[in-house]
């Protein structure tokens, strides 16, 4: 064996375990889900193998599923916008701070590392009937009876924002950090005021980071089912809840397959559009 062929074979050997894991446990199963979505769950509970369009017809035409899909997109969009509005100034503050930026970033990472389920349920301690907020309201005499503030769409969005905000801030921070600060000074010396220099120089240059953060917030937000279960009411189901219901509760796996593929196609389309115009590099930077 020559040195060249060995050099060429080594990366293949190194990559094989990881790629075959992804292939066998992700790509092949996804292909299988496509096949499964055309099978049929019969009344006896057995799966009938074949090519039936029933699951797809049901998923695509039933207004119940359509409404929940639209509602999911709406909730994810609102969450993304709130994250952008709350996160951008914060990222700007960290990037431009004279203080210890590392400490500020680490502080932000702390809640990021804290268990998602704990962070989600912690809102019950704050907004619940016997939570901190109601206790404070009653203490100052604003209300005599506790108000139920939980279990609605707003608290679902609140929980999602708390979960996703660090993703947004980190991505915006990474792109702000990469901008040459003298550019803004140059704009100012040419007669722009600080605000205009920000709007016309810094903001456009940081848009890739904002887009990467937005993509993560949207995709992760739209794919969740735990937050609506913990913080939402009975009518606040999101699309992933339907998948969970079909697969785990009703055991209707063919229908669950069709529903999860629908979710994959919708969110995949968003990722593809992002990839087409902005590429994946920025996203990778933010994730590291």
């Amino acid at each position: 064996m020559t040195v060249e062929t060995r050099e060429a074979r080594q990366p293949i050997i190194l990559l094989t375990p990881a790629l075959s894991t992804i292939g066998l446990l992700l790509i092949v199963p996804l292909g299988f889900v496509v096949v499964y979505s055309f099978w049929l769950r019969t009344a006896t509970g057995a799966d009938q193998v074949g090519f039936f369009l029933d699951n797809w017809v049901e998923s695509l035409t039933d207004p119940f599923y359509r409404d929940i899909l639209l509602n999911t997109i709406k909730i994810a969009l609102i969450t993304t916008v709130v994250c952008a509005l709350a996160g951008y100034p914060t990222a700007y503050f960290i990037a431009r701070s004279n203080g210890n930026r590392l400490v500020l970033l680490l502080l932000l990472m702390l809640p990021f590392w804290i268990s998602y389920i704990i962070r989600t349920m912690s809102w019950i301690n704050i907004l619940g009937v016997s939570g901190a907020f109601n206790w404070a309201l009653m203490s100052v005499g604003l209300t005599s009876e506790p108000i139920q503030m939980l279990y609605n769409e707003a608290t679902v969005i609140l929980g999602l924002v708390h979960f996703l905000l660090p993703f947004m801030i980190l991505n915006v921070y990474v792109s702000l950090e990469g901008i040459d600060r003298t550019l803004e000074d140059a704009a100012c010396s040419l007669g722009a005021n600080r605000w205009r220099a920000f709007l016309e120089v810094t903001l456009p240059l940081s848009l890739p980071g904002l887009a990467a953060g937005g993509l993560l917030c949207f995709v992760l937000g739209a794919g969740t089912y735990i937050t609506p279960l913990v913080l939402g009411g009975p009518t606040d189901a999101m699309f992933a809840n339907l998948v969970f219901e079909a697969i785990i509760t009703q055991l209707n796996w063919p229908l669950g397959s069709a529903l999860s593929l629908m979710l994959l196609v919708v969110l995949g389309a968003v990722v593809m559009v992002y990839n087409r115009y902005l590429g994946m590099t920025q996203l990778m930077k933010g994730l590291q």
């Binding site: 790629l19 790509i27 995709v219 794919g223 999860s260 593929l261 979710l263 994946m280």
Partner: peptide, 25 residues
Amino acid sequence: VISMLLIAPILIPEVVLAVALLLFL
């Protein structure tokens, strides 16, 4: 393509990933 494959599990919603693995196995 290889990089894309390796990071695919981040881009695919976890629910879908969960369903796929469960049904396949």
